[in-house]
């Protein structure tokens, strides 16, 4: 069983590394998202990195695609996977000038 868990972890880490490598990274330096609009495939993920000097609060209120990363401190990174097609407006709850569109396609 130990060997099984080990194998599972190896496969998982491989998958995660693969997913990580493929993710588009959204930076937040200078109180701005690094992209105004990105297009990703259904099931794909974005990596939100707070490389700014202050906390941000990435979220979406788009119906059906709501999410909230909460207060994300500088130096933290979070992956967000989008499972349904459509346009998702992503904002920082703290900083109203920070907004971007995630276009999720088939």
């Amino acid at each position: 069983m130990h060997k099984t868990i080990l194998f599972a972890l190896v496969i998982l880490s491989g998958l995660s590394a693969g997913a990580l490598a493929a993710n588009q990274v959204i930076h937040q330096q200078g109180r701005v998202f690094s992209s105004e609009s990105v297009t990703i495939k259904k099931g794909g993920a974005l990596t939100f990195v707070n490389d700014d000097s202050i906390p941000h609060n990435v979220m979406s209120a788009t119906k059906g695609s709501e999410f909230n990363l909460g207060s994300q401190a500088p130096g933290m990174s979070t992956d967000v996977t989008f499972k349904e097609t459509g346009d998702v407006q992503v904002i920082c709850a703290i900083h109203p000038r920070m907004k971007m569109m995630v276009k999720v396609t088939d």
């Binding site: 993920a45 990195v49 695609s65 709501e66 130096g75 989008f82 499972k83």
Partner: peptide, 14 residues
């Protein structure tokens, strides 16, 4: 929540 899955938050080196 619905169509979006939030992964774990990890520390990175800036």
């Amino acid at each position: 929540l619905g169509a979006v899955i939030v992964g774990e938050t990890r520390r990175i080196d800036l």
